[in-house]
Simulated assay, not measured.
Amino acid sequence: MGALHEHTAYSDGTYLTRPADVFQRVKSAGLDFAGSSDHSDNMALPLSVGRGDCSPEQFLDCYLFVDPDNRSDAFVKWKATQEQALAASDNNFTAFRGFEWTSDRFGHANIFFSRNIINAKTGPGYAVSMVRFWQWFTYPAQFGGGSDGLLSFNHPGREDAIESIVEGLGGDPGFTFNDFRYVAAADYRTVGIEVFGKGSEYDSDGPNGSWLSYALDKGWYLAPVGSEDHHDTRWGDADLPKTVFIARSRSRDDLREAMLARRFYAVAQNYNGIRLDYRIDDNPMGSRLRKKNG
């Protein structure tokens, strides 16, 4: 069991925090893994749009350098996050890097395990089209693409800046990832959707009572994610949702394999002790079943 979707001052989390703080706190809580995912918007910029208290004498460190002890990391946040993840990992705990692709029209998505990163706000992906994002996601990683990343749709339905204006006119066709339009080339590595996050339950706000079911009906093969989406410093606390992987070990490769196989599920806040082994005809969780009609 572990914590996914964590924010620090590398994007808009609490001032003077960094991914290493997330990993240390989640590890000390006795969890097995943590995946950080600061917003991609300012991962390439040496600044923070953090929150909390910042004294005048800490102004530069709060807003520009992020970390007074490692100021140069502010210029290489993506690389620094990987270094901090590797440093925090051992046989009993694995930290891994991700980022949150952020569009106020289409929605937010977490990408984990990729070596590269893309920013929605520096191209048409922010409000015009998701085409560039999907092209990046399916383009070979050795040439700067995201072909090694795994994607999870975040808090569906929350980004409605345009939808809320035109809903009475039939709605925005771009709302919730272009109405969860299926992208066959991305199917294999688009693995999850958040159903819990922060202290809330998201799923039942979806069409007919479930965003997860709606996305499945659109053609995606998704497992439910319990997301902390935490911007404070209580990463890993029991009153935040968690995700459980059914994996061979805690190693980074085995966690990624479990995620790719959809062998994971969400537990709500305050229900971190729940464990499930769900099978159909001896097929383990995540299996794609081929059945005749009926």
Rank of each mutant, 00 (worst) to 15 (best):
N154R: 04
S152N: 11
N272D: 15
V195M: 03
I118P: 01
T176D: 08
P140Y: 00
W78M: 01
E194Q: 09
N270R: 14
H230F: 08
A34W: 10
P241H: 08
G144D: 03
V76E: 11
P140F: 08
S11M: 06
T81G: 01
H108P: 02
A34C: 06
Y214T: 07
Q84G: 00
V76A: 13
A185V: 02
A215K: 01
Y278L: 14
N293F: 14
R248T: 08
S37T: 13
G144E: 06
S249K: 14
N283D: 11
E167T: 15
D73P: 00
Q135I: 04
F106S: 00
R18Y: 08
Q84W: 12
K218P: 00
H108K: 03
S28M: 05
R18V: 06
N42H: 07
L240E: 04
P46T: 14
F33A: 08
D282T: 13
R158D: 12
T176P: 01
F264I: 06
G219N: 11
Y182F: 15
D229F: 00
G157T: 05
S55E: 13
D205N: 12
F137I: 03
M130E: 13
M259N: 06
D179W: 02
P19Y: 05
Q135F: 03
S114K: 03
D38V: 00
E201R: 11
A238G: 04
R275I: 02
A261S: 14
A3E: 05
P140Q: 02
P284K: 14
G226C: 02
A127V: 03
G197L: 02
F177R: 05
Y278T: 13
I274K: 11
V131C: 04
I280W: 07
T94F: 07
G52C: 13
S210A: 10
G107W: 03
V76L: 12
A88V: 13
